[in-house]
Nucleic acid binder design. Structure first.
Lengths: 115, 115
DNA sequence: GTATGGTGTAAACCACGGTTTAAGGCAAAT
DNA sequence: ATTTGCCTTAAACCGTGGTTTACACCATAC
């Protein structure tokens, strides 16, 4: 599958697909003419990468994740550890949002009393 | 109070205090020599600005908030509306984090089964 | 044969919220 | 006297996650 199709199916701009490749996250095969040639497996991996980014994992960490993945199944424990770390990250974010909510609610209350 | 003390008490670098001033968020008085002279009221306002930024309000909106504040109590309803808007923003963020949490939990589960 | 569309590369550019540097000046403290 | 702390303006720089530009190549469509 060529890059424009991948762009259509993933919603990622072509430029971004090439950018991820520069960062070592993707490494599609090449057609005889030197064009990128993506497999369905590549597509699934891109979808996963999109999720990792959505949950706030920095690109550098996704890069590291990709590196581990290339090394094979023996690195599953490390990858799992990365996911756990990200989960803790999310827990922190959740707590933070709750604190912020409390703050804004108090402030809103003060303002309402002023009216 | 001079700028270095404000920097110490708020944790904001001097450069940032001057930057906020350029953006129209702060406007401390001046000493006879032309040095910035902050009051306790300024300090309280800076603390509030820090909270607004922490909860993810863009600097441009904080600027707008500051502008309203300068206009006096008649703008309290508009400011209240800004706070409501930010609260809705936070609600969205909360929902998002919950979705992300679900995703990562599912993925962790899959990986654990692989081991 | 030439126009169109897709591909390739490297490198500059973007938003955002600042931070840092440069270059010069004034006033109080040591 | 010289160090320290403040003042000014203007502009460059930072990280992050891309986006855009400039330029060329290749293959099919007309």
């Amino acid at each position: 599958m060529r890059i424009s199709q991948v762009s259509d199916r993933t919603g990622l701009p072509i430029s971004t697909l090439r950018y991820y490749e520069r960062r070592g996250i993707l490494e599609p095969g090449r057609s005889p003419e030197g064009h990128r040639d993506y497999t369905e497996g590549d597509l699934a991996w891109i979808a996963f990468v999109q999720r990792l980014l959505e949950i706030g994992m920095p690109l550098a960490q996704v890069e590291e994740y990709a590196r581990l993945r290339r090394e094979g199944d023996s690195t599953v424990p490390q990858r799992l550890e990365m996911l756990y770390r990200q989960r803790r990250e999310l827990e922190g974010r959740m707590r933070k949002v709750r604190t912020q909510m409390d703050f804004i609610d108090r402030k809103i209350d003060i303002y309402r009393r002023m009216l």
